[in-house]
Design a protein around this nucleic acid. Structure first.
Lengths: 209, 209
DNA sequence: GGCGTTGAGTGGTCTGACCACTAATCTACT
DNA sequence: AGTAGATTAGTGGTCAGACCACTCAACGCC
């Protein structure tokens, strides 16, 4: 009879690190102790500490600069997405799920935003549209970033960003700028039905590409 | 003038590993070469190979069994989800966000489910309700698990489960079983308005607790 | 005051050494 | 002959120590 719960050192380090960050109230940009110091403090080998740090790095939680140190980063999971996507997006169903979920979130974000948008926000959206040039790959992302910003739900935005990055690994969108123009109109009209319709069309477009 | 693009060894190992898996057509359960062999093949130190493997392990892509070897796993991002969520949920000023987002997802899941629910599903929901006893802490979770199951969106379900688990760490719900009963009724009536209303009430209840 | 030098500190990497565990093989006893 | 037990090769887990390349600030020279 063996206890399956014998944690590995690097997992312990992860936990400790998480606790440390919380205790010290560190936020993105702040510096973590050096690998050597962490190893000594946590009574672990440097290699074990590194395994934990490298994993966190891949998750996009920290950033590391040779010669300087290790820093908390604002969540930029692009490495993780790259690695993960190759493995989990193989099933068609996963892609379907991803698309459906992203659309769902965007639709809701629009509805939330429509109650919060100020005149200034509309100007920003409008100028974003004016600056549009065919071939821009990040338009959708930038447009919705504004929408999410207004909604003031950081969590929802982070989830969405993650999915947006995933979907970009297998799908290069072609934009119909008109849909976005009408979307802004629908927002200012407070027209929920039209928002849903356009939100759906956004994806039909993209699908057909 | 420095080239920022000098890859680290463990990142190279990750790429190689991904390629290797694809080339060999490995699927979940299959064994990967040993750490020592990988190190030799890829011309890298064992510690670098381990950093890559540990990162993959955290992502839930591989499973490692001491004394046996390293195996491809079917994607169970248990650890990743745990670590990631701890940081994301901690950073985003969250509890409000979490509640709002979870509610949003549940509401949408209900709407999706209402188009897919079979007679049998209703029976299951009904018996779940019949078995309810005050003090059961997992009722909400179990009820919605059925809803998500019907929706056939695994991704959405995983996201929700994660948030559900998290919210339980700081919030013990008290249930008003009547709301769930009426929810089932609204579902079978295909009454979107009522679904939204009840979904909101679910959380007003809980808030007031 | 300004500018190069230098040294301490940091991450990046490799090597070699143990340990703990697993599974297959071999051995010896019944 | 069959089986229980011991042996051993191979694996992941961990650590310590050694370099390297890089950054930055302190120092000292002009």
């Amino acid at each position: 009879m063996t206890m399956p719960s014998k944690s590995k050192v690097y997992e312990e380090v992860l936990k400790e690190l998480r606790r440390f960050i919380e205790e010290q109230g560190l936020s993105p940009g702040d510096k973590l102790p050096s690998e050597r110091e962490l190893a000594e403090r946590l009574n672990a080998g440097r290699s074990s500490v590194r395994e934990a740090l490298r994993a966190m790095e891949l998750l996009g939680l920290i950033e590391t600069r040779r010669g300087e140190g290790t820093f908390l980063s604002s969540y930029q999971p692009y490495h993780m997405v790259e690695i993960l996507s190759a493995f989990i997006l193989q099933e068609a169903k996963t892609k379907e799920n991803l698309k459906a979920t992203k659309q769902l979130i965007e639709k809701e974000a629009l509805k939330i935003a429509k109650n919060h948008l100020t005149d200034y926000d509309y100007q920003v959206l409008q100028s974003k549209i004016d600056q549009f040039e065919p071939g821009t790959e990040t338009f959708h992302y930038e447009f919705f970033s504004i929408i999410f910003e207004v909604g003031e739900n950081q969590l929802l935005m982070k989830i969405w960003r993650l999915m947006e990055e995933f979907s970009r690994t297998f799908h290069k969108p072609a934009y119909d700028i008109n849909l976005y123009i009408r979307l802004v109109q629908a927002l200012s009209d407070q027209d929920n039905i039209q928002i849903e319709t356009l939100s759906n069309q956004l994806y039909q477009e993209k699908l057909s590409k």
